[in-house]
Design a protein around this nucleic acid. Structure first.
Lengths: 233, 233
DNA sequence: TATATCTTTATGTGCATACATAATAATCTG
DNA sequence: CAGATTATTATGTATGCACATAAAGATATA
């Protein structure tokens, strides 16, 4: 057995993945420690560390100090969805993008909204409803609430040329947020805006973002039937 | 200005994030190079590199050799969904899990399936339909095709005690795969199995996994109405 | 002027070493 | 023997250095 040379962390990663896929290292198995692998691969421990860390991030390895590194018994598939600005998403498909502001009001929101956004129950928020179009056809419907205490500049923004979707990314930073994906039946108004039959199944993306302790914006995007959110594994 | 000391890559990362959130570094801005930041933070360049790499992975920074590092003008939100074994997902919510095999046949699949899986149009595949239950109520419907040429051991597996969902993770490794999320209206048979009204909107997860050049399995999971796939940002 | 080549620069990576830290294993102690 | 203490060990990370590499910019060439 030649002390085969894997000098880059990528090649070490590839070899580690090969061994896992070839079931040379089976689910649940404890693999050799970094120092031993470094000797075997003919590289520095830091290089092995970098490779193992990368594999562990995909969920295929479990690492614990002292306990060592083992192949995940039941790897949790991690699908990373890239939620881009809708204009970019549409243009990336080679379609022409367009945007239509439906309504824009400054008003007291329903309790469900002020509750989720932790704004006062009587505090007014900016409400924007807009339609995103691809090749002239409805693509997604945006229903958004904006916390004016956090993004006061939004008050002067008409959102007719630049969508709120895009404007906020440029003008309002967030520290964290939640996102949820679900299937819902389009109600009358929404179905109407999207130009689809009432009760059609549409994919909904609900996002709520925060800046420190304050909510920035809460948005629901409804995509026309047939829309698929895809990614690799 | 004290040469404030950020000695760990996490603290450097936190400081970088702080500057971005505080709009000290605005979207589109070029930030100082690693060497300069290392001097400013009083740490090694490798430490700065580690921190910036981590931030770049979240999409908040764009890094290019020679061009330097700049704050993403329109950060692409990356939502990492962890798709676990359904039993674990249910048990993690504190619910009792159960599993019901509906059918299991070895037959020639529709062309749409053999086409996607790149198996011969006359090649038989193992077809499994099963219902996952949480607290006795339908949770998700699994509709799966398994490539027996890749996982021949599946032939002897009844899938009545252990779900195909779980068994495959233990017994069949995959090198890569695709996953898609969409909203569809449940057809008669599916609605029936899930115990919901026909045409109800259900969230569908379609997954196709491969081992090198060969498809391993193609599966569609339909979740009962109301189901939300959530994660942080 | 258009194109090719060189130079410069910022990030990307490897290595050897040292020490930190968490968690297990071994040992001691009442 | 239970429980507390200590030792051991594998991963985690910081450092300084060297060199690789991509890409922008400068320069040379046809």
């Amino acid at each position: 057995m030649t002390p085969s040379s894997f000098r880059t962390w990528q090649s070490v990663q590839a070899e580690v993945l090969r061994r896992i896929h070839a079931r040379d290292w089976k689910p649940g198995d404890l693999i050799p420690n970094e120092a031993d692998l470094a000797v075997e691969f003919g590289c520095a421990r830091a290089t092995v560390n970098r490779a193992l860390r990368a594999v562990a991030e995909t969920g295929l390895l479990d690492r614990r100090r002292k306990a060592g590194t083992r192949v995940a018994a039941q790897p949790v598939a991690k699908a990373t969805l890239e939620i881009a600005v809708i204009r970019h998403e549409v243009e990336a498909r080679g379609d022409t993008y367009d945007h239509l502001l439906i309504e824009r009001h400054y008003l007291t929101p329903p309790l469900a909204i002020s509750g989720a956004m932790r704004t006062g129950s009587t505090e007014k928020l900016l409400h924007v409803r807009a339609l995103h179009l691809a090749e002239g056809a409805p693509y997604a419907l945006e229903n958004r609430w904006i916390n004016m205490r956090v993004v006061p500049e939004a008050m002067n923004e008409p959102f007719d040329r630049v969508s709120a979707n895009e404007w906020l990314l440029q003008h309002a930073a967030y520290t964290h947020g939640d996102i949820a994906f679900s299937a819902i039946q389009a109600n009358g108004a929404d179905a109407d805006s999207l130009g689809i039959a009432e009760n059609s199944a549409v994919l909904a993306i609900d996002r709520l973002t925060w800046n420190r302790e304050a909510s920035v914006t809460k948005v629901q995007l409804l995509f026309t039937p047939g829309y698929q959110l895809r990614t690799g594994l």
